[in-house]
Amino acid sequence: MGQRAVDRYIGSCHCGTVRFAIETDFPELTTCDCSICRRKNALMVKVHESAFELLAGEEALTEYRFNTHTARHFFCSTCGIYPFHRKRVTPDWVGVNVFCLDGFDPEGIPVRATDGAGMS
């Protein structure tokens, strides 16, 4: 598969209160087996904070931290959807739930499983 172009994608929570934009070429998508990711079953793309822009809904975001309280998981306080999180090991990167991206189809992008459960 050839390299994808870096494009801008718009995403949102279910109710549309939280809206954001990312720029990425989708080098890979990731899943995680930590206790929260198993439950939310998100498929994520990692983007640097410079390629992420929160467009609307900052006041509606609810933050959840657990275990080491380093990773910052964000949820819409209106509809409950998880659109993104600040990563634990690389906090200047954002893990974005690709199912929140408008019109995005993950077909054909490699998926890497990460070992979140094994992190101490």
Rank of each mutant, 00 (worst) to 15 (best):
I81F: 10
S120I: 08
V18K: 00
L29I: 12
T70I: 14
Q3V: 15
N67P: 00
F20W: 04
H48N: 13
T114K: 03
V94I: 15
W93H: 14
V94Y: 09
I81T: 04
F66Q: 03
F99H: 14
T70H: 10
R38N: 09
V98C: 02
R4P: 14
G80I: 12
E28W: 12
F52Q: 04
V18I: 15
P110Q: 13
F84K: 11
R72F: 11
E23D: 07
E59C: 03
F26E: 05
P27W: 05
D105L: 11
G80S: 08
N97Y: 01
R19I: 02
H85K: 11
C37R: 11
R65V: 13
D33N: 15
C79D: 10
G57A: 11
V47G: 02
H69S: 12
C37I: 08
T30Q: 10
N97E: 00
R19H: 05
A5T: 11
R72T: 01
F104Q: 09
V94L: 14
E49P: 00
R72Y: 04
G116V: 08
C79W: 15
C100H: 01
Y82I: 07
M1A: 13
D115W: 11
G16Y: 12
L61T: 05
T68Q: 08
C32N: 01
E53S: 14
G11D: 05
K40D: 05
S12V: 11
A51N: 15
D102L: 09
E63M: 10
V6F: 04
